[in-house]
């Protein structure tokens, strides 16, 4: 049962630091008696875990099929242009990280975007940009 709760521990660490720092991986590896490579490999599987700091606002725009049919591509382009960054990048001022993600589970309300824990539905380009402006 060595690995029980590893996932939840990783969440807690990320909730604290915003990412999972190296020394925390070392500690987990000790506590769970696992090679640190295994903890690292587990972290790196998940798209919502980060081993490097991200922007203050994590912006996730869904581009899976249902949203795609509701022009999420246009939304993605607008957000990219507004923030001046590509998928996976962080703005220079460390405020925003943008990720084009798979389904967020609000397929009936697309296109959708998540900013940190908040989900925004039925978006159009202007509203999305307003939401980002409000974060500033």
């Amino acid at each position: 049962m060595a690995r029980a709760n590893l996932l939840e521990r990783l969440h807690t660490i990320q909730d604290t630091y915003g990412y999972i720092p190296e020394n925390e991986i070392n500690k987990l590896s000790d506590q769970f008696d696992l090679p640190r490579s295994k903890v690292y490999g587990t972290i790196k599987f998940y798209s919502m875990f980060y081993t490097e700091p991200t922007g203050k606002y994590m912006v996730r725009v869904c581009d899976s099929l249902s949203c795609h049919l509701n022009d999420s591509e246009g939304l993605v382009t607008a957000v990219k242009n507004y923030l001046g960054i590509a998928d996976g990048e962080t703005t220079e001022d460390k405020k925003f990280t943008l990720e084009v993600v798979e389904c967020l589970g609000h397929c009936g309300e697309g296109p959708v975007m998540m900013v940190n824990d908040q989900i925004y539905t039925y978006l159009n380009e202007n509203r999305a940009i307003q939401i980002l402006k409000d974060c500033m």
């Binding site: 090679p35 490579s37 295994k38 690292y40 490999g41 790196k44 599987f45």
Partner: peptide, 10 residues
Amino acid sequence: GVGIFTMANR
């Protein structure tokens, strides 16, 4: 019994 390697990403 060392385990330096892992798969990363997916």
